[in-house]
Design a binder for these strands. Sequence first.
RNA 1: GGGGCGGUAGCUCAGUCGGUCAGAGCAGAGGACUCAUAAUCCUUGGGUCGUGGGUUCGAGCCCCACCCGCCCUACCA
Length: 526
Amino acid sequence: MPGTEDAFYLTTPIYYVNDAPHIGHGYTTVMGDILTRWHRQRGEQVWYLTGTDEHGQKVLRKAEENGVKPQEWVDRLIDTEWKPLLETLDIANDDFIRTTEERHLLGAKAFWERMHANDAVYKGSFSGWYSVGAEEFVAEDDVLDGEGEDTGHKVSALDGSRLEHVTEENYFFRLSDYQDRLLALYEERPEFIQPESSRNEIIAFVKRGLNDLSISRSTFDWGIQIPWDPSHVMYVWIEALLNYVTAIGYGTDQDRFERLWPADVHLVGKDIARFHAVIWPAMQMASGIEVSHRVFAHGWLLVGGQKMSKSKANGIRPAEIVDVFGSDAYRYYFARALTFGRDGSISWEDIHARYTSELANGLGNLASRTAAMIGKYFEGRLPDAGEPTDAETAVVDLVADATARADAAIEALAPHEAVSAVWEIVESLNGYLAEQQPWQVAKHDLVRTGAILATAAEGLRALCVLLAPVMPKATAALWESLGADAVIGPLSDQRIADVPRWGQLPAGTPVTKGAVLFPRIEVEDA
RNA sequence: GGGGCGGUAGCUCAGUCGGUCAGAGCAGAGGACUCAUAAUCCUUGGGUCGUGGGUUCGAGCCCCACCCGCCCUACCA
Protein backbone atom coordinates (compact mmCIF):
# COMPACT_ATOMS: atom_id res chain seq x y z
CA MET A 1 0.00 0.00 0.00
CA PRO A 2 2.26 2.76 -1.24
CA GLY A 3 2.25 6.07 0.50
CA THR A 4 -0.50 5.44 2.99
CA GLU A 5 1.83 4.99 5.93
CA ASP A 6 1.75 8.59 6.94
CA ALA A 7 -1.77 9.82 6.55
CA PHE A 8 -4.97 9.13 4.75
CA TYR A 9 -5.28 12.20 2.56
CA LEU A 10 -8.64 12.73 0.89
CA THR A 11 -9.81 15.69 -1.13
CA THR A 12 -13.04 17.03 -2.53
CA PRO A 13 -12.97 19.15 -5.62
CA ILE A 14 -12.55 22.79 -4.82
CA TYR A 15 -15.86 24.36 -5.59
CA TYR A 16 -16.23 27.24 -7.96
CA VAL A 17 -17.21 30.19 -5.78
CA ASN A 18 -19.60 31.55 -8.34
CA ASP A 19 -21.89 28.55 -7.99
CA ALA A 20 -24.53 28.48 -5.34
CA PRO A 21 -23.92 25.52 -3.03
CA HIS A 22 -26.35 22.77 -3.96
CA ILE A 23 -26.96 19.20 -2.93
CA GLY A 24 -24.38 17.98 -5.41
CA HIS A 25 -21.67 19.85 -3.52
CA GLY A 26 -23.24 18.64 -0.32
CA TYR A 27 -23.14 15.06 -1.47
CA THR A 28 -19.45 15.04 -2.34
CA THR A 29 -18.50 16.86 0.81
CA VAL A 30 -20.55 14.63 3.07
CA MET A 31 -19.25 11.44 1.55
CA GLY A 32 -15.70 12.65 1.94
CA ASP A 33 -16.46 13.52 5.52
CA ILE A 34 -17.90 10.10 6.27
CA LEU A 35 -14.92 8.35 4.75
CA THR A 36 -12.39 10.47 6.59
CA ARG A 37 -14.22 10.31 9.90
CA TRP A 38 -14.24 6.54 9.59
CA HIS A 39 -10.51 6.48 8.96
CA ARG A 40 -9.98 8.67 12.01
CA GLN A 41 -12.13 6.30 14.01
CA ARG A 42 -9.74 3.59 12.90
CA GLY A 43 -7.02 5.54 14.59
CA GLU A 44 -5.30 6.61 11.41
CA GLN A 45 -3.77 9.96 10.69
CA VAL A 46 -6.16 11.71 8.34
CA TRP A 47 -6.14 14.85 6.28
CA TYR A 48 -9.42 15.98 4.76
CA LEU A 49 -9.18 18.88 2.37
CA THR A 50 -11.88 20.92 0.71
CA GLY A 51 -11.92 24.46 -0.57
CA THR A 52 -12.85 26.89 -3.27
CA ASP A 53 -11.71 27.82 -6.74
CA GLU A 54 -11.81 31.58 -7.01
CA HIS A 55 -10.08 32.73 -10.14
CA GLY A 56 -11.20 32.94 -13.75
CA GLN A 57 -13.01 35.22 -16.03
CA LYS A 58 -16.45 34.37 -14.77
CA VAL A 59 -15.65 35.42 -11.26
CA LEU A 60 -14.11 38.62 -12.52
CA ARG A 61 -17.14 39.43 -14.59
CA LYS A 62 -19.54 38.67 -11.77
CA ALA A 63 -17.60 40.91 -9.43
CA GLU A 64 -17.70 43.73 -11.95
CA GLU A 65 -21.42 43.31 -12.34
CA ASN A 66 -21.74 43.74 -8.63
CA GLY A 67 -19.43 46.72 -8.64
CA VAL A 68 -16.78 45.29 -6.36
CA LYS A 69 -13.22 44.11 -6.68
CA PRO A 70 -12.92 40.40 -7.42
CA GLN A 71 -11.14 39.70 -4.16
CA GLU A 72 -13.89 41.41 -2.25
CA TRP A 73 -16.46 39.46 -4.21
CA VAL A 74 -14.97 36.06 -3.49
CA ASP A 75 -14.42 36.93 0.16
CA ARG A 76 -18.07 37.68 0.43
CA LEU A 77 -19.11 34.41 -1.22
CA ILE A 78 -16.87 32.42 1.04
CA ASP A 79 -18.41 33.98 4.11
CA THR A 80 -22.00 33.83 3.00
CA GLU A 81 -22.15 30.63 0.98
CA TRP A 82 -19.26 28.24 1.31
CA LYS A 83 -18.10 28.29 4.89
CA PRO A 84 -21.72 28.05 6.08
CA LEU A 85 -22.20 24.96 3.95
CA LEU A 86 -19.59 23.14 6.01
CA GLU A 87 -21.35 24.17 9.19
CA THR A 88 -24.70 23.11 7.86
CA LEU A 89 -23.48 19.66 6.97
CA ASP A 90 -21.33 19.19 10.06
CA ILE A 91 -18.14 18.67 8.10
CA ALA A 92 -14.91 17.99 9.98
CA ASN A 93 -12.44 19.06 7.32
CA ASP A 94 -8.85 19.58 8.37
CA ASP A 95 -8.20 22.37 5.96
CA PHE A 96 -9.95 24.68 3.57
CA ILE A 97 -7.93 25.94 0.65
CA ARG A 98 -8.80 29.07 -1.26
CA THR A 99 -7.02 29.59 -4.52
CA THR A 100 -6.57 33.25 -3.71
CA GLU A 101 -4.41 32.43 -0.73
CA GLU A 102 -0.70 33.16 -0.68
CA ARG A 103 0.26 29.52 -0.15
CA HIS A 104 -1.61 28.57 -3.30
CA LEU A 105 -0.10 31.38 -5.34
CA LEU A 106 3.40 30.44 -4.31
CA GLY A 107 2.86 26.73 -4.68
CA ALA A 108 1.20 27.04 -8.07
CA LYS A 109 4.05 29.16 -9.37
CA ALA A 110 6.58 26.68 -8.06
CA PHE A 111 4.72 23.86 -9.76
CA TRP A 112 4.68 25.70 -13.06
CA GLU A 113 8.37 26.48 -12.80
CA ARG A 114 8.92 22.82 -12.37
CA MET A 115 6.84 21.83 -15.38
CA HIS A 116 8.58 24.51 -17.40
CA ALA A 117 12.00 23.35 -16.31
CA ASN A 118 11.06 19.84 -17.36
CA ASP A 119 10.07 21.13 -20.76
CA ALA A 120 6.43 20.17 -20.34
CA VAL A 121 5.29 23.69 -21.18
CA TYR A 122 5.92 25.68 -24.33
CA LYS A 123 4.65 28.81 -25.98
CA GLY A 124 2.37 28.36 -28.94
CA SER A 125 -0.59 29.93 -30.53
CA PHE A 126 -4.17 29.15 -29.92
CA SER A 127 -6.84 30.15 -32.35
CA GLY A 128 -10.54 29.84 -32.10
CA TRP A 129 -13.84 31.62 -32.34
CA TYR A 130 -14.08 34.38 -29.83
CA SER A 131 -17.26 36.05 -28.69
CA VAL A 132 -16.58 39.67 -27.94
CA GLY A 133 -19.93 39.99 -26.27
CA ALA A 134 -19.39 37.08 -23.91
CA GLU A 135 -15.65 37.71 -23.78
CA GLU A 136 -14.78 34.08 -24.24
CA PHE A 137 -13.84 31.47 -26.73
CA VAL A 138 -16.67 29.38 -28.06
CA ALA A 139 -16.14 25.69 -28.65
CA GLU A 140 -16.22 24.51 -32.24
CA ASP A 141 -19.50 22.70 -31.71
CA ASP A 142 -21.20 25.90 -30.69
CA VAL A 143 -20.17 27.85 -33.76
CA LEU A 144 -22.97 28.39 -36.24
CA ASP A 145 -23.31 30.22 -39.55
CA GLY A 146 -25.06 33.50 -38.98
CA GLU A 147 -28.41 34.33 -40.50
CA GLY A 148 -30.14 37.61 -41.28
CA GLU A 149 -27.90 40.53 -40.50
CA ASP A 150 -25.23 38.10 -39.32
CA THR A 151 -25.08 36.36 -42.69
CA GLY A 152 -21.51 35.77 -43.66
CA HIS A 153 -20.37 35.75 -40.05
CA LYS A 154 -20.14 33.01 -37.48
CA VAL A 155 -22.33 33.27 -34.41
CA SER A 156 -22.38 31.57 -31.04
CA ALA A 157 -24.99 28.92 -30.47
CA LEU A 158 -24.96 29.89 -26.83
CA ASP A 159 -26.13 33.48 -27.04
CA GLY A 160 -26.26 34.31 -30.74
CA SER A 161 -23.47 36.82 -30.49
CA ARG A 162 -21.21 37.38 -33.50
CA LEU A 163 -17.85 35.65 -33.39
CA GLU A 164 -14.38 36.65 -34.51
CA HIS A 165 -11.63 34.27 -35.41
CA VAL A 166 -8.85 35.14 -33.03
CA THR A 167 -5.36 33.82 -32.65
CA GLU A 168 -3.50 34.42 -29.45
CA GLU A 169 -0.23 33.41 -27.99
CA ASN A 170 -0.63 30.98 -25.13
CA TYR A 171 1.41 28.57 -23.14
CA PHE A 172 0.69 24.94 -23.80
CA PHE A 173 1.06 21.83 -21.74
CA ARG A 174 2.47 18.84 -23.61
CA LEU A 175 -0.42 16.59 -22.70
CA SER A 176 0.06 14.62 -25.89
CA ASP A 177 3.37 13.36 -24.57
CA TYR A 178 1.64 11.52 -21.77
CA GLN A 179 -0.82 9.36 -23.61
CA ASP A 180 1.19 6.17 -23.29
CA ARG A 181 2.18 6.77 -19.71
CA LEU A 182 -1.42 7.44 -18.79
CA LEU A 183 -2.65 4.30 -20.45
CA ALA A 184 0.06 2.39 -18.65
CA LEU A 185 -1.09 3.93 -15.40
CA TYR A 186 -4.69 2.80 -15.94
CA GLU A 187 -3.44 -0.63 -16.87
CA GLU A 188 -1.05 -1.11 -13.98
CA ARG A 189 -3.27 0.45 -11.37
CA PRO A 190 -6.88 -0.39 -12.21
CA GLU A 191 -7.97 1.23 -8.99
CA PHE A 192 -6.56 4.59 -10.04
CA ILE A 193 -9.79 5.72 -11.60
CA GLN A 194 -13.02 4.31 -10.23
CA PRO A 195 -15.70 3.20 -10.65
CA GLU A 196 -15.33 0.94 -13.65
CA SER A 197 -17.71 2.99 -15.77
CA SER A 198 -15.60 6.11 -15.40
CA ARG A 199 -12.47 4.13 -15.99
CA ASN A 200 -13.81 2.83 -19.25
CA GLU A 201 -14.73 6.28 -20.46
CA ILE A 202 -11.40 7.71 -19.49
CA ILE A 203 -9.47 4.99 -21.24
CA ALA A 204 -11.54 5.38 -24.37
CA PHE A 205 -10.95 9.09 -24.27
CA VAL A 206 -7.21 8.82 -23.91
CA LYS A 207 -6.94 6.14 -26.55
CA ARG A 208 -8.46 8.48 -29.08
CA GLY A 209 -5.43 10.65 -28.69
CA LEU A 210 -4.57 13.67 -26.62
CA ASN A 211 -3.93 17.19 -27.77
CA ASP A 212 -1.72 19.65 -26.03
CA LEU A 213 -3.57 21.95 -23.74
CA SER A 214 -3.70 25.70 -23.83
CA ILE A 215 -3.05 26.56 -20.22
CA SER A 216 -2.65 30.32 -20.01
CA ARG A 217 -4.77 33.35 -20.71
CA SER A 218 -3.73 36.88 -21.49
CA THR A 219 -7.06 38.56 -22.11
CA PHE A 220 -7.83 39.16 -18.44
CA ASP A 221 -5.81 39.18 -15.28
CA TRP A 222 -7.88 37.60 -12.48
CA GLY A 223 -5.62 34.66 -11.96
CA ILE A 224 -2.12 33.69 -11.05
CA GLN A 225 0.63 35.13 -13.22
CA ILE A 226 2.92 32.81 -15.06
CA PRO A 227 6.18 33.15 -13.14
CA TRP A 228 8.33 33.84 -16.17
CA ASP A 229 5.73 35.83 -18.09
CA PRO A 230 3.46 38.07 -16.04
CA SER A 231 1.45 39.01 -19.11
CA HIS A 232 -0.28 35.66 -18.83
CA VAL A 233 -2.33 34.13 -16.05
CA MET A 234 -2.82 30.44 -15.52
CA TYR A 235 -5.88 28.88 -17.07
CA VAL A 236 -8.15 28.29 -14.13
CA TRP A 237 -8.48 24.54 -14.36
CA ILE A 238 -4.78 23.99 -14.54
CA GLU A 239 -4.37 26.22 -11.56
CA ALA A 240 -7.27 24.81 -9.56
CA LEU A 241 -6.02 21.23 -9.71
CA LEU A 242 -2.86 22.38 -8.00
CA ASN A 243 -4.76 23.05 -4.81
CA TYR A 244 -4.27 19.41 -3.90
CA VAL A 245 -0.56 19.98 -3.55
CA THR A 246 -0.37 23.64 -2.62
CA ALA A 247 -2.71 23.13 0.34
CA ILE A 248 -0.31 20.69 1.93
CA GLY A 249 2.79 22.74 1.38
CA TYR A 250 4.06 22.22 -2.13
CA GLY A 251 6.55 24.99 -2.77
CA THR A 252 6.10 26.43 0.69
CA ASP A 253 6.56 23.64 3.20
CA GLN A 254 8.31 20.71 1.65
CA ASP A 255 8.41 18.58 4.79
CA ARG A 256 4.71 18.76 5.25
CA PHE A 257 4.11 18.09 1.59
CA GLU A 258 6.17 14.96 1.70
CA ARG A 259 4.36 13.70 4.75
CA LEU A 260 0.95 13.94 3.14
CA TRP A 261 1.59 13.36 -0.52
CA PRO A 262 0.44 11.48 -2.53
CA ALA A 263 -3.27 11.91 -2.06
CA ASP A 264 -5.06 8.69 -1.26
CA VAL A 265 -8.37 9.68 -2.79
CA HIS A 266 -9.56 12.53 -4.94
CA LEU A 267 -13.32 12.50 -4.70
CA VAL A 268 -14.94 14.10 -7.71
CA GLY A 269 -18.22 14.26 -9.53
CA LYS A 270 -18.15 12.24 -12.70
CA ASP A 271 -18.38 15.41 -14.77
CA ILE A 272 -14.86 16.36 -13.81
CA ALA A 273 -13.36 12.89 -13.76
CA ARG A 274 -11.44 13.63 -16.92
CA PHE A 275 -9.58 16.56 -15.42
CA HIS A 276 -8.59 14.44 -12.47
CA ALA A 277 -7.82 11.19 -14.23
CA VAL A 278 -6.12 12.53 -17.36
CA ILE A 279 -4.82 16.05 -17.03
CA TRP A 280 -3.95 15.97 -13.36
CA PRO A 281 -1.85 12.79 -13.39
CA ALA A 282 -0.09 14.05 -16.51
CA MET A 283 0.75 17.25 -14.68
CA GLN A 284 2.02 15.25 -11.74
CA MET A 285 4.26 13.28 -14.06
CA ALA A 286 5.40 16.48 -15.71
CA SER A 287 6.45 18.00 -12.42
CA GLY A 288 8.04 14.82 -11.17
CA ILE A 289 5.86 14.19 -8.14
CA GLU A 290 4.25 10.86 -7.35
CA VAL A 291 0.85 10.30 -8.92
CA SER A 292 -2.19 10.29 -6.64
CA HIS A 293 -3.49 6.90 -5.63
CA ARG A 294 -7.13 7.02 -6.53
CA VAL A 295 -9.66 9.19 -8.23
CA PHE A 296 -13.21 8.26 -7.41
CA ALA A 297 -16.05 9.67 -9.47
CA HIS A 298 -19.47 9.59 -7.90
CA GLY A 299 -22.71 9.73 -9.83
CA TRP A 300 -25.50 12.20 -10.34
CA LEU A 301 -28.41 12.88 -8.07
CA LEU A 302 -31.62 12.37 -9.94
CA VAL A 303 -34.33 14.29 -8.26
CA GLY A 304 -37.80 12.86 -8.19
CA GLY A 305 -40.85 13.50 -6.14
CA GLN A 306 -43.29 16.29 -6.29
CA LYS A 307 -41.66 19.33 -4.87
CA MET A 308 -38.17 18.67 -5.98
CA SER A 309 -39.08 17.64 -9.49
CA LYS A 310 -40.01 21.20 -10.28
CA SER A 311 -36.51 22.39 -9.82
CA LYS A 312 -33.32 20.75 -10.91
CA ALA A 313 -31.11 19.05 -8.42
CA ASN A 314 -28.65 21.87 -8.52
CA GLY A 315 -31.38 24.21 -7.42
CA ILE A 316 -31.79 22.55 -4.06
CA ARG A 317 -29.77 23.98 -1.24
CA PRO A 318 -28.60 21.52 1.39
CA ALA A 319 -30.01 23.79 4.07
CA GLU A 320 -33.53 23.17 2.78
CA ILE A 321 -33.18 19.54 3.75
CA VAL A 322 -31.12 20.08 6.87
CA ASP A 323 -33.57 22.62 8.23
CA VAL A 324 -36.28 19.99 8.27
CA PHE A 325 -34.46 16.74 8.99
CA GLY A 326 -31.18 17.85 10.52
CA SER A 327 -27.63 17.32 9.39
CA ASP A 328 -27.40 13.74 10.67
CA ALA A 329 -30.37 12.64 8.62
CA TYR A 330 -29.02 14.44 5.58
CA ARG A 331 -25.71 12.66 5.89
CA TYR A 332 -27.35 9.34 6.58
CA TYR A 333 -29.73 9.64 3.68
CA PHE A 334 -27.16 10.41 1.04
CA ALA A 335 -24.85 7.71 2.31
CA ARG A 336 -27.54 5.07 2.59
CA ALA A 337 -29.94 5.66 -0.27
CA LEU A 338 -27.43 5.96 -3.08
CA THR A 339 -24.86 3.62 -4.47
CA PHE A 340 -21.66 5.60 -4.34
CA GLY A 341 -20.27 5.86 -7.83
CA ARG A 342 -23.56 5.50 -9.63
CA ASP A 343 -26.42 7.80 -10.43
CA GLY A 344 -29.29 7.53 -8.02
CA SER A 345 -32.71 8.90 -7.32
CA ILE A 346 -33.53 11.02 -4.38
CA SER A 347 -36.80 12.57 -3.38
CA TRP A 348 -38.29 14.44 -0.54
CA GLU A 349 -40.72 11.59 0.01
CA ASP A 350 -37.89 9.10 0.20
CA ILE A 351 -35.95 11.18 2.67
CA HIS A 352 -39.00 11.44 4.84
CA ALA A 353 -39.81 7.74 4.54
CA ARG A 354 -36.30 6.66 5.46
CA TYR A 355 -36.08 9.17 8.23
CA THR A 356 -39.23 7.79 9.77
CA SER A 357 -38.72 4.08 9.27
CA GLU A 358 -34.97 3.82 9.68
CA LEU A 359 -33.90 6.65 11.93
CA ALA A 360 -36.94 7.35 14.12
CA ASN A 361 -38.52 3.89 14.26
CA GLY A 362 -35.33 1.93 13.86
CA LEU A 363 -32.34 3.40 15.63
CA GLY A 364 -34.12 6.11 17.59
CA ASN A 365 -36.71 3.81 19.04
CA LEU A 366 -34.13 1.17 19.86
CA ALA A 367 -32.19 3.66 21.93
CA SER A 368 -35.34 4.94 23.50
CA ARG A 369 -36.80 1.61 24.56
CA THR A 370 -33.47 0.35 25.90
CA ALA A 371 -32.85 3.41 28.02
CA ALA A 372 -36.46 3.44 29.17
CA MET A 373 -36.33 -0.12 30.46
CA ILE A 374 -33.01 0.38 32.18
CA GLY A 375 -34.62 3.34 33.86
CA LYS A 376 -37.77 1.49 34.73
CA TYR A 377 -36.34 -1.80 36.00
CA PHE A 378 -32.90 -0.78 37.20
CA GLU A 379 -33.28 2.81 38.27
CA GLY A 380 -31.07 3.98 35.46
CA ARG A 381 -28.07 1.83 36.36
CA LEU A 382 -26.70 -0.51 33.75
CA PRO A 383 -27.38 -4.07 34.97
CA ASP A 384 -24.93 -6.96 34.95
CA ALA A 385 -24.57 -8.82 31.64
CA GLY A 386 -24.24 -12.23 33.27
CA GLU A 387 -23.55 -15.33 31.24
CA PRO A 388 -24.43 -15.10 27.55
CA THR A 389 -26.97 -17.49 26.10
CA ASP A 390 -27.16 -18.37 22.43
CA ALA A 391 -29.22 -15.26 21.80
CA GLU A 392 -26.52 -13.00 23.19
CA THR A 393 -23.82 -14.85 21.33
CA ALA A 394 -25.70 -14.32 18.11
CA VAL A 395 -25.80 -10.58 18.74
CA VAL A 396 -22.11 -10.43 19.57
CA ASP A 397 -21.23 -12.42 16.49
CA LEU A 398 -23.31 -10.24 14.25
CA VAL A 399 -21.69 -7.09 15.58
CA ALA A 400 -18.25 -8.50 14.87
CA ASP A 401 -19.23 -9.61 11.43
CA ALA A 402 -21.03 -6.41 10.49
CA THR A 403 -18.10 -4.35 11.75
CA ALA A 404 -15.68 -6.27 9.58
CA ARG A 405 -17.88 -5.96 6.54
CA ALA A 406 -18.45 -2.26 7.09
CA ASP A 407 -14.76 -1.63 7.48
CA ALA A 408 -14.02 -3.49 4.26
CA ALA A 409 -16.72 -1.52 2.48
CA ILE A 410 -15.16 1.78 3.54
CA GLU A 411 -11.83 0.55 2.25
CA ALA A 412 -13.50 -0.20 -1.07
CA LEU A 413 -15.08 3.27 -1.16
CA ALA A 414 -18.54 1.81 -0.76
CA PRO A 415 -19.92 3.73 2.21
CA HIS A 416 -23.46 2.77 1.27
CA GLU A 417 -22.52 -0.85 1.90
CA ALA A 418 -20.91 0.07 5.18
CA VAL A 419 -24.04 1.77 6.44
CA SER A 420 -26.14 -1.10 5.24
CA ALA A 421 -24.00 -3.59 7.14
CA VAL A 422 -24.13 -1.52 10.31
CA TRP A 423 -27.87 -1.26 10.03
CA GLU A 424 -28.17 -5.00 10.34
CA ILE A 425 -27.15 -4.45 13.95
CA VAL A 426 -30.00 -2.02 14.51
CA GLU A 427 -32.47 -4.47 13.08
CA SER A 428 -31.14 -7.47 14.92
CA LEU A 429 -31.22 -5.63 18.24
CA ASN A 430 -34.83 -4.67 17.79
CA GLY A 431 -35.56 -8.29 16.93
CA TYR A 432 -33.54 -9.51 19.89
CA LEU A 433 -35.59 -7.39 22.27
CA ALA A 434 -38.85 -8.57 20.74
CA GLU A 435 -37.81 -12.18 21.19
CA GLN A 436 -36.36 -11.89 24.66
CA GLN A 437 -39.23 -9.76 25.94
CA PRO A 438 -37.38 -8.24 28.87
CA TRP A 439 -40.62 -6.53 29.99
CA GLN A 440 -42.13 -9.98 30.55
CA VAL A 441 -39.04 -11.51 32.08
CA ALA A 442 -38.89 -8.60 34.49
CA LYS A 443 -41.97 -9.93 36.22
CA HIS A 444 -40.10 -12.94 37.57
CA ASP A 445 -36.38 -12.73 36.77
CA LEU A 446 -34.62 -9.42 37.07
CA VAL A 447 -31.20 -11.00 36.64
CA ARG A 448 -32.10 -12.25 33.20
CA THR A 449 -33.83 -8.97 32.37
CA GLY A 450 -30.62 -7.21 33.24
CA ALA A 451 -28.60 -9.45 30.98
CA ILE A 452 -30.87 -8.69 28.08
CA LEU A 453 -30.77 -4.95 28.60
CA ALA A 454 -27.02 -4.93 29.14
CA THR A 455 -26.67 -6.66 25.80
CA ALA A 456 -28.85 -4.09 24.13
CA ALA A 457 -26.81 -1.32 25.70
CA GLU A 458 -23.57 -2.87 24.47
CA GLY A 459 -25.10 -3.06 21.03
CA LEU A 460 -25.87 0.63 21.19
CA ARG A 461 -22.32 1.27 22.26
CA ALA A 462 -21.13 -0.50 19.15
CA LEU A 463 -23.58 1.42 17.00
CA CYS A 464 -22.36 4.72 18.39
CA VAL A 465 -18.84 4.04 17.22
CA LEU A 466 -19.83 2.64 13.86
CA LEU A 467 -22.27 5.41 13.10
CA ALA A 468 -20.27 8.31 14.51
CA PRO A 469 -18.74 8.98 11.08
CA VAL A 470 -22.18 9.19 9.55
CA MET A 471 -24.19 10.85 12.28
CA PRO A 472 -21.86 12.66 14.63
CA LYS A 473 -24.54 14.56 16.50
CA ALA A 474 -26.97 11.74 17.22
CA THR A 475 -24.24 9.31 18.22
CA ALA A 476 -22.74 11.90 20.55
CA ALA A 477 -26.13 12.29 22.21
CA LEU A 478 -26.54 8.54 22.50
CA TRP A 479 -23.02 8.18 23.88
CA GLU A 480 -23.99 10.68 26.51
CA SER A 481 -27.17 8.85 27.34
CA LEU A 482 -25.26 5.59 27.75
CA GLY A 483 -22.97 7.27 30.24
CA ALA A 484 -20.11 5.89 28.19
CA ASP A 485 -17.84 8.89 28.27
CA ALA A 486 -17.11 8.58 31.97
CA VAL A 487 -16.26 4.88 31.81
CA ILE A 488 -14.59 4.33 28.45
CA GLY A 489 -13.76 7.80 27.26
CA PRO A 490 -14.84 10.09 24.45
CA LEU A 491 -16.60 8.64 21.45
CA SER A 492 -13.91 10.00 19.16
CA ASP A 493 -11.32 7.87 20.96
CA GLN A 494 -13.16 4.63 20.30
CA ARG A 495 -11.64 2.46 17.62
CA ILE A 496 -13.39 0.49 14.95
CA ALA A 497 -11.21 -2.49 15.73
CA ASP A 498 -12.42 -2.48 19.34
CA VAL A 499 -16.09 -2.33 18.49
CA PRO A 500 -16.70 -6.09 18.71
CA ARG A 501 -15.05 -6.36 22.13
CA TRP A 502 -18.04 -7.01 24.34
CA GLY A 503 -18.70 -5.86 27.87
CA GLN A 504 -17.02 -2.49 27.72
CA LEU A 505 -19.75 -0.72 29.61
CA PRO A 506 -19.48 -1.83 33.24
CA ALA A 507 -22.52 -2.65 35.36
CA GLY A 508 -23.65 0.33 37.37
CA THR A 509 -23.00 2.86 34.64
CA PRO A 510 -25.71 5.49 34.80
CA VAL A 511 -27.91 5.36 31.74
CA THR A 512 -30.27 8.21 31.08
CA LYS A 513 -33.11 8.47 28.67
CA GLY A 514 -32.01 11.68 27.00
CA ALA A 515 -33.89 13.56 24.34
CA VAL A 516 -35.50 11.68 21.48
CA LEU A 517 -32.79 11.16 18.87
CA PHE A 518 -34.94 11.48 15.78
CA PRO A 519 -38.30 13.06 16.55
CA ARG A 520 -41.01 12.12 14.14
CA ILE A 521 -41.50 14.80 11.57
CA GLU A 522 -44.82 15.69 10.10
CA VAL A 523 -44.61 16.93 6.56
CA GLU A 524 -47.61 18.72 5.16
CA ASP A 525 -46.99 19.79 1.59
CA ALA A 526 -43.19 19.73 1.39
C1' G B 1 -21.27 8.69 -35.90
C1' G B 2 -17.93 6.35 -31.91
C1' G B 3 -17.94 4.97 -26.72
C1' G B 4 -19.81 4.19 -21.47
C1' C B 5 -23.62 2.87 -17.99
C1' G B 6 -28.44 1.45 -17.10
C1' G B 7 -33.60 -0.80 -18.34
C1' U B 8 -35.22 -6.79 -12.33
C1' A B 9 -41.94 -6.86 -7.81
C1' G B 10 -46.36 -0.31 -7.02
C1' C B 11 -41.51 2.69 -5.56
C1' U B 12 -35.98 2.69 -4.71
C1' C B 13 -32.62 -0.84 -5.74
C1' A B 14 -29.25 -6.01 -4.68
C1' G B 15 -28.08 -9.82 -7.72
C1' U B 16 -19.88 -11.41 -6.85
C1' C B 17 -16.90 -16.79 -10.84
C1' G B 18 -23.55 -18.65 -15.51
C1' G B 19 -26.56 -23.81 -12.07
C1' U B 20 -32.08 -22.76 -4.72
C1' C B 21 -31.07 -15.95 -8.57
C1' A B 22 -36.10 -14.77 -9.21
C1' G B 23 -34.26 -11.21 -4.09
C1' A B 24 -34.02 -6.81 -0.13
C1' G B 25 -36.05 -2.43 1.82
C1' C B 26 -40.28 0.72 1.62
C1' A B 27 -45.48 0.90 0.63
C1' G B 28 -50.02 -2.48 1.06
C1' A B 29 -52.58 -6.84 3.81
C1' G B 30 -53.03 -10.10 8.15
C1' G B 31 -51.35 -11.49 13.00
C1' A B 32 -48.36 -11.05 17.85
C1' C B 33 -46.82 -7.86 21.68
C1' U B 34 -46.90 -3.46 24.92
C1' C B 35 -40.50 -1.81 27.03
C1' A B 36 -40.51 2.21 23.37
C1' U B 37 -40.83 8.04 19.26
C1' A B 38 -49.15 4.69 18.13
C1' A B 39 -42.78 2.58 17.82
C1' U B 40 -41.36 -3.11 17.65
C1' C B 41 -41.67 -8.37 15.99
C1' C B 42 -43.76 -12.30 12.72
C1' U B 43 -46.33 -13.78 8.19
C1' U B 44 -47.65 -12.21 3.35
C1' G B 45 -44.69 -10.50 -3.16
C1' G B 46 -45.75 -15.07 -7.92
C1' G B 47 -42.78 -9.83 -11.24
C1' U B 48 -42.44 -12.87 -19.41
C1' C B 49 -35.51 -10.07 -14.90
C1' G B 50 -36.53 -3.89 -21.97
C1' U B 51 -37.54 -6.89 -26.96
C1' G B 52 -36.04 -10.80 -30.42
C1' G B 53 -32.55 -14.38 -31.48
C1' G B 54 -28.06 -17.40 -30.13
C1' U B 55 -24.24 -20.26 -27.11
C1' U B 56 -24.88 -23.96 -23.07
C1' C B 57 -27.03 -29.82 -19.85
C1' G B 58 -28.40 -24.93 -17.63
C1' A B 59 -28.45 -17.43 -18.48
C1' G B 60 -30.85 -11.08 -15.31
C1' C B 61 -25.76 -13.05 -15.34
C1' C B 62 -22.09 -14.86 -21.88
C1' C B 63 -22.76 -13.49 -27.58
C1' C B 64 -25.61 -10.76 -31.62
C1' A B 65 -29.43 -7.40 -33.16
C1' C B 66 -33.01 -3.94 -31.86
C1' C B 67 -35.94 -0.38 -28.56
C1' C B 68 -35.78 3.18 -24.42
C1' G B 69 -33.10 6.45 -20.68
C1' C B 70 -28.83 8.98 -18.87
C1' C B 71 -23.78 10.21 -19.76
C1' C B 72 -18.75 10.89 -22.42
C1' U B 73 -16.82 12.39 -27.26
C1' A B 74 -11.41 18.04 -24.06
C1' C B 75 -9.54 23.73 -23.33
C1' C B 76 -16.78 28.31 -19.16
C1' A B 77 -15.57 26.57 -14.49
